[in-house]
């Protein structure tokens, strides 16, 4: 039964990872990363229950706070780029290559 939580978490994580790899809009990529973080939260909370300790549940709160901080930084970078280029597609970012 507890394995099912892990399976669900792996599925969520894979959806996030695939989204990160194939989507071309910076915002959607960002959402995919958040999905990966939440998959980790699911593992932490369910395994905390399995092991009978609270560490995992406390960790989930830390992850939420870190994710919130990451949103602040990430959105500010994406918005800055959008204001300059009128686009959030990562395919348009071609100044740096080689």
């Amino acid at each position: 039964m507890t394995d099912l939580y892990l399976v669900l978490a792996v599925i969520l994580f894979s959806v996030g990872l695939v989204g990160f790899l194939i989507r071309r809009n910076a915002l959607i990529i960002f959402m995919s990363i958040e999905l990966m973080l939440n998959a980790s939260n699911l593992v932490l909370v369910s395994m905390s229950h399995v092991h009978g300790v609270l560490d995992g549940q406390v960790a989930a709160f830390f992850v939420m706070v870190v994710a919130a901080a990451e949103v602040v930084i990430g959105l500010s970078i994406i918005v800055t780029i959008f204001r300059a280029r009128r686009s959030t597609s990562v395919d348009n970012e071609i100044l740096l290559k080689g």
Binding site: A9, M36, S40, V43, M47, S48, D55, G56
Partner: peptide, 14 residues
């Protein structure tokens, strides 16, 4: 982080 979560699942501790 997902790796950390799996290690936690393995060991029950961080």
């Amino acid at each position: 982080l997902f790796g950390c979560a799996l290690l936690f699942a393995y060991a029950g501790s961080f």
